[in-house]
Design a protein around this nucleic acid. Structure first.
Lengths: 306, 306
DNA sequence: GATTTTGATCGAGAAACCCGATGACGCTGC
DNA sequence: GCAGCGTCATCGGGTTTCTCGATCAAAATC
């Protein structure tokens, strides 16, 4: 059998790729710079290849092969961690740290309810949170820097396993006195002639709102080159009379429009909602934990959506 | 960061799972029994779990978690090997050992032509061969005990990447003087009333032959509870006048019917062929090698099929 | 041109690993 | 029932590997 790289060496390799600096990489591995340097040299010697291009100035530059090895090293480390994690979760379910990513159109409105419920249900659970757009979260999920995502489905997290937990209906938000404010509910077609304000690019809610109105991305939304950076600013823009928008009921129920005088009406039609759900890597050792979390989420979402 | 299992320990674990015997597992790892025993105990201590059920007599019995860890350990080792392999193949393409599986209805007819061609094209390539049915090969591919499969597509190797290399038309093999022997080519429907002899269960060719005749598996073929164990015995059975059969042209071109007096006619109709191809794990470090092999295979198959 | 930053190298101490020998336990055969 | 054998766990000692702090050489910065 051939000589395998040690987990230590792979840690050094991946850490160096992430910081591109020997000293800081060593620090993140809790070793001295000399140790990390020697470890990488040993790895290069063992594999009989060049991982770093040492001729290229003082910056840390990886060879093409080096970049591939970083990638494979990351997955190898992930699979080693999966072994330890499987043992850990078997010893005490809901035990260890859990790194969860959540999108900005869910987090601020659901987490304040969710966290206390989880703390109560799973006192030993240590939940680390990161808020970011779907694309970034998916990247971090696949590169093993997050374990679990709370986002809108379907998401194009390649190969991830997903589980829906709730439907979040869209509400139409109108300035006070708007011509549509008298309607009981509002059809998507009625918005065709309206000035529809949206979140900036990158928010999946933007695309979902466009889709539910039967519009293609790029059709609309960037009036005057301006798009909102968060639901809160979006609400302020509508309140200023710049146009109308769609808000997820989750945000409305959390009181995002309080004190603005905005008129809120359900969006009519089938499919006038987004699906909230969890996603994780297939073969994740703690999938059982995630499913248990999902069923708690179902309950919390029911409450949070009135 | 948590404490990771060492590759060594995982090797011990997987080896023990395969031999279910400390002494032999140690031998396959080239260490003494004491070393392997201590290594496994250290792993159990590090993970703080029980991998083996030591209360269960003298036999090696894994706990449920232990079995899961074996599985995860296998994939972890595979991903570590992938790192080393990526470096190796970058250093010298077509270099190291390559473990290829091949099904019995291809191997004997193609390998005699293929091997010399490959030796000539890639002198440094070390090709280890294993002949088995598709299901067993697929299992060994996914558990990292084979690198590459040469078989008939589509195969249900879950998640494997496959590349077709040739079409292998079916020929109808008839005993001398058979009523259909006068036909230029024979339609599948003409075989409906014939006694169709087939390989025994497990050979994919059996199912393909049935499918191309529009029959369901189990419909036919086990006359008197007898099915052939290889194409050679199948040919002998047809020559004895027990019935007719379908042979892949690859086998016919290799002369499998020489000296039998059998009459061979093309099977008419679209789809009257099987597809030969290669399959490998996705993300295999040496995928480039495999593709290069595939293009050589295309040429060899063209020659081997006349 | 002096200084700082950065990565490689060196020697010494610590830790991990492995081996052969031995111990504990269950099974088998007489 | 008891000696003998097979199997896995444990122990002491030797070797290798890993890590650290100190130091060096080269490049970038001032």
């Amino acid at each position: 059998m051939t000589l395998l790289p040690s987990p230590q060496q792979l840690r050094y390799l991946v850490a160096l790729a992430e910081s591109r600096h020997f000293g800081r990489a060593a620090q993140s591995c809790s070793v001295t710079q000399s140790t990390l340097s020697a470890g990488l040299l040993a790895l290069e010697r063992q594999l009989d290849t060049h991982i770093l291009d040492r001729a290229a100035g003082r910056h840390v530059v990886f060879t093409p092969l080096g970049l591939e090895l970083v990638d494979r090293g990351r997955t190898a480390l992930a699979s080693l961690e999966a072994v330890a994690e499987a043992a850990m979760t078997a010893r005490e379910p809901m035990g260890g740290p859990l790194r969860m990513g959540v999108i900005p159109t869910i987090g601020p409105f659901l987490l304040p309810r969710l966290m206390p419920a989880l703390r109560h249900a799973f006192p030993r659970l240590k939940l680390y949170l990161r808020e970011d757009h779907t694309a970034q979260l998916a990247d971090r999920l696949s590169t093993n820097r997050l374990d679990l995502l709370l986002l809108a489905l379907p998401c194009d997290c390649s190969g991830a396993e997903a589980m829906p937990v709730a439907r979040d209906p869209f509400m139409v938000a109108l300035p006070p006195g708007h011509r549509l404010a008298g309607e009981e509910q509002i059809a998507a077609s009625a918005l065709a002639t309206e000035r529809l304000l949206l979140l900036e690019d990158g928010h999946c809610l933007r695309d979902q709102a466009l889709a539910v109105c039967g519009l293609l991305a790029g059709d609309r939304g960037d009036h005057d080159g301006f798009a909102a950076t968060s639901l809160h600013t979006l609400v302020q823009m509508v309140a200023s009379g710049l146009g109308v928008t769609l808000l997820p009921r989750l945000a409305v129920a959390a009181g995002i429009t309080h004190g603005t005088g905005l008129v809120l009406r359900p969006l009519a039609g089938v499919g006038a909602w987004r699906t909230l759900g969890l996603a994780w890597r297939p073969n994740a050792p703690r999938a059982a934990d995630y499913r248990a979390l999902a069923s708690h989420l179902v309950e919390t979402c029911r409450e949070a959506l009135h």
